[in-house]
Design a protein around this nucleic acid. Structure first.
Length: 759
DNA sequence: ATAGGGTTAG
């Protein structure tokens, strides 16, 4: 017997546990409560798989209170709260009297719902048991209201150090720094746990200096204390600091445990440095580190973030049944971030149980890979199908998807959803809203969010400035960059791109020039903005000179800006130079060929138009056609040229026909090229189809219903032919029409367009 | 037995 006890003490891995289990069976002890309870206890300690442990539990015919309690503890640690209560019921049905040992486990599993248990526990007379008492107070400290925990704490006649530590952690959990600090000073004695709680509290609060101060001052440290400090650094983005501290820890002679490795591996992920990752793995091999599920998941994530998806997948597959939700989520998000949404979605539906993070990973994956509508669809599936509450992270992706679709009605519905479900927003939530309103053309709402949010960060400023840029509000963008400097927020690369674009779109050439000169080391994007600014202002030769003298190699954006300016100002010579460079830099981009041919067309050089089209055909460049999205009445309608899948198709095409007739009668020409040139029948179809028809389909739907403002969004390149159509509609219908084309807005009123330079 | 540290999503 004592030999078996010794083995039990040496169980550190699943393999060792299995050997121990085999010994038990060999001695025919698998039906004995004592040994089964001991086995389950070991399962809890090493995080053994749920199914395996259940098997052990089921082997005993009449479980006693010890077996039940150890199994309850196992379920509780696994987070299988439902199983905890099912087992508790079974325990009572089996006439096994629960003792005071059971209640702390139940209370912990019940979480917020333990309020009801409170009364039961008092009735049963366990209220004065120090463990039960602490479990209840700790529950309020963790789940709130913290004030309730404080009342219980104050009422306690003889508080243990555990009670003090519980309430201090509770205050940290709810962000009450002052109370945590006060109680820490008041407590009669402090142990290593009290000190560690202070370190991790300050670290989670983002105050790493104070955390480090407590860490340095603690009378004694163990691995947990070191881990708390290390994870503080990693989670606040100081991966280098963490690695430095890790070296100190080794020098201090401390043995890193699995948690330490998880932290260190994750600081490696943050760097995205495959070399560092591989040296880390070899050092894990050298030290013969046991890799538990947490460490393996961290490794998986590290490989994924360092760009080695296959290695990540290998680890995932090797984990077999020993992987948890986090492992699944890490793999799903790895695929989603890489744009492999098929693989991500396959895993997503394969995984046994999805949590908020699983949904968030998928929704974010769609939102970030240009599939905004899918992101929103999935969000709707989440809210209808699962009993899961979306959180702020979910909403940030959904808000961003609405912004990319220009779906203002939907965005407003999302905001009301947030309010109804009382989802608390932090800066990233508010910032997403600013971007959403900006993209939807509602600058007043964007400004209101910006003003009303408690604190503004760099991203808040950048989002609003980008909004002003898209709408050509140059003066306001300039005011904003001054304001942020006054508030002590340093503008970054993105800020300057925004302000320069805003100047460019509102004709503030001088202000733009000044801003450009104030940038310490302008990037190639800033040069592209300047070329755009000079080009739009008609200073094409100056723009060309800027390109010739810039210290960095120009990219496609720079020449693209020049080509666009050449189209506006009909400059063939420079246009050809720009196009020539673009054809080399991005031969597959059909837009460049179209732009050049439009320059020729505007000057009546039809042979050149034909030549460019010929080149395009010869190189096999396809004009990309995409879906068009039109929002109306809070719903998104999807179109593609010639598509008849929409339920209102017949009505739309009828209106389109009427529209064409009205336009012809009013003397408007639908497509300049199509009328002036004698083109083949096939090509005519294409030209009408890809532009004006799609647009008109959308308008058809909208005109047929009631609406004061129309937004056309996504994948719609507004060009000459559409312009005529929209002008017509704005006149015929007496409406204001706002069209979003990429990131520009065009306002049509009474047959006039307010965007002068674009046409 | 109760209190402190860990991996995934924006």
């Amino acid at each position: 017997m004592s030999r078996l006890d010794t083995i039990a003490c040496n169980v550190h891995s699943l393999n060792q546990l299995r050997q121990f289990h085999a010994q038990i069976i060999q001695h025919s002890l698998q039906h004995h409560n004592y040994w089964v309870a001991l086995l389950i206890g070991q399962c809890t300690r090493i995080h053994a798989p749920l199914a395996y442990t259940r098997l052990i539990f089921d082997s005993v015919p009449r479980p006693n209170v010890f077996v039940f309690t150890s199994m309850l503890k196992f379920y509780s640690q696994w987070g299988a709260h439902h199983d905890v209560f099912t087992l508790f019921d079974r325990m009572r049905r089996c006439d096994v009297r629960p003792d005071a040992f059971v209640y702390p486990i139940l209370i912990k599993s019940a979480g917020k719902a333990a309020t009801g248990l409170h009364a039961l526990v008092l009735k049963l007379g366990h209220g004065s048991d120090q463990y039960v008492r602490n479990a209840i107070m700790d529950m309020f400290a963790k789940h709130g209201p913290i004030e309730h925990a404080r009342v219980l704490f104050d009422e306690m006649p003889n508080k243990t150090i555990v009670d003090w530590n519980s309430i201090i952690s509770g205050y940290w959990k709810w962000g009450h720094e002052a109370e945590a600090f006060e109680l820490f000073n008041l407590m009669p004695e402090r142990n290593i746990i009290s000190w560690t709680a202070m370190v991790s509290g300050y670290a989670k609060f983002g105050d790493l200096e104070k955390a480090r101060k407590f860490f340095d001052e603690m009378p004694e440290k163990n691995v947990v204390s070191w881990n708390a400090m290390l994870s503080g650094y990693v989670q606040n983005g100081f991966a280098e600091e963490a690695l430095k501290l890790f070296d100190m820890m080794i020098d201090a002679g401390l043995q890193p445990d699995e948690t330490t490795w998880v932290t260190i591996i994750s600081s490696c992920s943050a760097r995205g440095d495959l070399q560092l990752a591989e040296s880390l793995v070899s050092s894990l091999d050298r030290r013969k580190i046991r890799l538990n599920c947490f460490v393996k998941t961290a490794l998986l994530d590290m490989y994924a973030k360092c760009g080695s998806l296959e290695t990540a997948r290998n680890i995932f597959d090797e984990m077999g049944i020993y992987k948890n939700q986090v492992s699944w989520n890490a793999m799903i998000s790895a695929y989603a971030k890489n744009g492999d949404l098929t693989s991500a979605s396959k895993l997503f539906y394969e995984m046994p149980e999805r949590n908020v993070v699983s949904w968030n990973s998928m929704i974010a994956g769609y939102a970030q890979n240009g599939q905004s509508a899918m992101a929103i669809e999935l969000f709707k599936e989440m809210t209808t199908k699962e009993e899961l509450k979306p959180d702020e992270v979910t909403m940030v992706s959904v808000i961003s998807a609405c912004g990319h679709l220009g779906a203002l009605e939907l965005g407003k519905w999302v905001l009301s959803f947030i309010k109804e479900n009382s989802i608390k927003l932090s800066n990233s939530g508010y910032n997403a809203l600013i971007s959403m309103y900006s993209r939807c053309g509602s600058m007043e709402d964007a400004k209101k969010i910006f003003q009303d949010m408690p604190t503004r960060d760099l991203i808040s400023y950048n989002s609003l400035i980008a909004g002003f840029a898209a709408h050509g509000h140059g003066t306001e963008a300039n005011e904003l960059i001054l304001r942020m400097k006054n508030e002590g927020i340093e503008p970054d690369r993105i800020t300057y791109i925004g302000v320069l674009t805003a100047c460019s779109h509102s004709g503030l050439a001088k202000e733009g020039q000044k801003i450009f000169e104030s940038i310490r080391s302008p990037s190639v994007d800033h040069y592209a903005c300047m070329v755009d600014l000079l080009g739009r202002a008609g200073e094409l030769d100056q723009a060309k000179r800027l390109i010739d003298t810039m210290p960095i190699k120009p990219h496609a954006g720079v020449y693209g800006a020049l080509l666009n300016a050449c189209r506006i100002h009909k400059r063939v010579d420079l246009g050809e130079i720009a196009a020539c460079n673009l054809f080399e830099l991005e031969p597959e981009n059909s837009g460049n060929y179209v732009l050049l041919s439009n320059i020729y067309a505007s000057l009546g050089k039809w042979e050149d138009v034909e030549r460019v089209r010929g080149t395009m055909r010869a190189r096999g460049v396809q004009k990309t056609t995409g879906w068009s999205w039109v929002e109306f009445g809070g719903k998104l309608h999807r179109f593609i040229a010639g598509d008849r899948s929409h339920k209102l198709s017949d009505q739309i095409y009828r209106l389109l026909e009427e529209l064409r007739k009205k336009m012809r009668d009013a003397g408007y020409v639908a497509d300049k090229c199509y009328v002036l040139r004698d083109v083949e029948e096939e090509e005519k179809e294409e030209m009408v189809g890809t532009h004006s028809e799609k647009l008109a389909i959308g308008f058809g739907l909208l005109v047929s219903e009631v609406g004061a403002m129309i937004r056309v969004v996504k994948n719609l390149r507004v060009c000459g032919d559409c312009h005529f159509a929209i002008k017509m509609i704005s006149k015929l219908e007496g409406r204001e029409i706002i069209v979003r084309d990429n990131n520009r807005f065009h306002c049509f009123k009474n047959g006039e367009c307010s965007c002068r330079d674009y046409w």
